[in-house]
Simulated assay, not measured.
Amino acid sequence: MILITGASGTVGGLVLDRLPTGGAVRVLARNPARVTVSRPGVEVVQGDYGDQDSLRRALRGVRRALLVTNRVAGDDDALFIRSACRAGVEQVVKISAAAVVDERADDLITRWQRAGEDLLLSSGLAWTLLRPRSFMSNALSWASLVRSESLVRALYGRSPNACVDPRDIADVAVRALTESGHAGRAYTLTGPQPLTAHEQAEQLGQVLGRPLRFEELDPAQARISLLRSHSEPVAEALLRSALRQQAGAKAQVLDTVREVTGRAPRSFRTWAQDHASAFAPDTR
Score class of each variant (00 low, 15 high):
Ala97Phe: 11
Ala97Val: 14
Ala98Tyr: 08
Ala98Gly: 08
Ala98Glu: 14
Ala98Phe: 09
Val100Leu: 01
Val100Ile: 09
Val100Tyr: 01
Val101Gly: 14
Val101Leu: 12
Val101Ser: 12
Asp102Met: 05
Glu103Arg: 11
Glu103Cys: 13
Ala105Trp: 05
Ala105Lys: 01
Ala105His: 07
Asp106Cys: 09
Asp106Gly: 12
Asp106Ser: 13
Asp107Ile: 11
Asp107Pro: 05
Asp107Cys: 08
Asp107Asn: 07
Leu108Pro: 05
Leu108Glu: 04
Ile109Asn: 06
Thr110Met: 05
Thr110Trp: 04
Thr110Ala: 06
Arg111Tyr: 01
Arg111Pro: 00
Arg111Met: 00
Trp112Val: 15
Trp112Lys: 08
Trp112His: 07
Ala115Cys: 07
Ala115Arg: 14
Gly116Lys: 08
Gly116Val: 11
Glu117Val: 07
Glu117Ile: 01
Glu117Arg: 00
Asp118Tyr: 06
Asp118Ala: 05
Leu119Lys: 09
Leu119Ser: 08
Leu120Pro: 04
Leu121Arg: 00
Leu121Phe: 02
Ser122Asp: 06
Ser122Gln: 10
Ser122His: 12
Ser122Tyr: 09
Ser123Asn: 00
Ser123Glu: 05
Ser123Pro: 02
Gly124Trp: 03
Gly124Lys: 02
Gly124Ile: 01
Gly124Pro: 02
Leu125Gln: 00
Leu125Ala: 03
Leu125Asn: 03
Leu125Arg: 00
Ala126Asp: 08
Trp127Cys: 10
Trp127Pro: 04
Trp127Glu: 04
Thr128Glu: 00
Thr128Gln: 00
Thr128Lys: 00
Leu130Ile: 11
Leu130Val: 13
Leu130Cys: 05
Leu130Lys: 07
Leu130Met: 06
Arg131Trp: 02
Pro132Arg: 06
Pro132Gln: 08
Arg133Leu: 12
Arg133Ser: 14
Ser134Trp: 13
Ser134Ala: 12
Phe135Ala: 06
Met136Ala: 11
Ser137Leu: 05
Asn138Pro: 03
Asn138Ser: 09
Ala139Glu: 03
Ala139His: 09
Leu140Ile: 13
Ser141Met: 05
Ser141Phe: 10
Ser141Tyr: 09
Ser141Leu: 15
Trp142Thr: 12
Trp142Glu: 03
Trp142Ala: 05
Ser144Thr: 15
Ser144Val: 15
Ser144Lys: 14
Val146Ser: 00
Val146Cys: 02
Val146Trp: 02
Val146Tyr: 03
Val146Ala: 04
Arg147Trp: 02
Ser148Val: 11
Glu149His: 12
Glu149Asp: 13
Glu149Lys: 11
Ser150Trp: 02
Ser150Tyr: 07
Ser150Phe: 06
Ser150Pro: 09
Leu151Met: 10
Leu151Arg: 12
Leu151Trp: 12
Arg153Ile: 11
Arg153Lys: 04
Arg153Phe: 01
Ala154Leu: 00
Ala154Arg: 00
Ala154Met: 04
Leu155Trp: 03
Leu155Asn: 13
Leu155Lys: 01
Tyr156Leu: 03
Tyr156Ile: 14
Tyr156Asn: 06
Gly157Trp: 14
Gly157Tyr: 15
Gly157Asn: 15
Arg158Pro: 06
Arg158Met: 08
Ser159Ile: 07
Ser159Asp: 04
Pro160Trp: 01
Pro160His: 06
Asn161Tyr: 13
Asn161Ala: 14
Asn161Phe: 13
Asn161Asp: 11
Asn161Met: 14
Cys163Gln: 14
Cys163Met: 15
Cys163Tyr: 10
Cys163Asp: 10
Val164Gly: 05
Val164Met: 04
Val164Asn: 02
Asp165Gly: 10
Asp165Val: 10
Asp165Leu: 07
Asp165Lys: 03
